[in-house]
């Protein structure tokens, strides 16, 4: 047998290659089963980068579906709440060029929070049903209120309100949240002079 192989170089190499192929194929197959990943980690990572406002401005019912769609090759510039920061982060992650925000889906604005004008609220619970993150408190025929800490500013509660008592107000900078702005944010004419409060 060995002699036969030694004599037939072609046969020997064929056998060796087939053997190797089988061995590594088996190994790969085993590894694929053993270390199987159930969900695509890229989707999770993209989802991590999205702002989780669940506002649906991208055209998807929530952030995760949009993350899924990006992983499948969708454009990365459909998220106005995340703005350019999010686009850049996703571009860096996926190693593609960062593009400006798609204006079709909305513009990047200051972060806002919903406030219910409580004396006008009729207690219809429509906003409660609309809120994607359960940030509105109240029950039927009783006044509702927004839990400020939990509101993502998604805007979804504004339209359903029949008496239009919800305002989206920009988040105010308080003494606790204020910090020095980087020098670039200061108008060049007054390089070091700085008079107005900084909105983060």
């Amino acid at each position: 047998m060995i002699n036969l192989l030694l004599d037939n170089v072609v046969l020997a190499s064929l056998l060796a290659l087939i053997g190797l192929g089988g061995m590594f194929g088996g190994l790969l197959g085993y590894a694929a089963e053993k270390f199987k990943i159930n969900s695509d980690p890229v989707i999770d990572t993209i989802d991590e980068l999205l702002p989780q406002t669940q506002c649906g401005q991208c055209g998807f019912p929530g952030c995760r579906p949009y993350a899924q769609s990006i992983a499948d090759g969708d454009a990365i510039n459909k998220c106005p709440p995340g703005g350019q920061t999010t686009i850049n982060a996703i571009a860096k992650l996926l190693d593609i060029t960062a593009v400006p925000l798609d204006e079709e889906h909305g513009q990047e604005e200051l972060r806002t929070i919903a406030y219910i004008r409580e004396d006008e609220c009729i207690g219809c619970t429509k906003c409660i049903q609309a809120c994607p993150v359960d940030a509105i408190l109240g029950s039927a025929k009783l006044m509702h209120t927004v839990i400020e800490k939990e509101c993502t500013g998604c805007d979804l509660c504004v339209d359903p309100c029949p008496v239009d008592c919800i305002d989206m107000l920009p988040v105010k900078t308080s003494i606790d949240t204020w910090y020095w702005p980087s020098p670039e944010n200061i108008p060049p004419s007054t390089t070091s002079a700085y008079t107005e409060g900084h909105a983060s």
Binding site: W180, P183, T190, S192, A193, Y194, T195
Partner: peptide
Amino acid sequence: MNYKQISS
């Protein structure tokens, strides 16, 4: 009365 605000 406004004075300049300058970071230290």
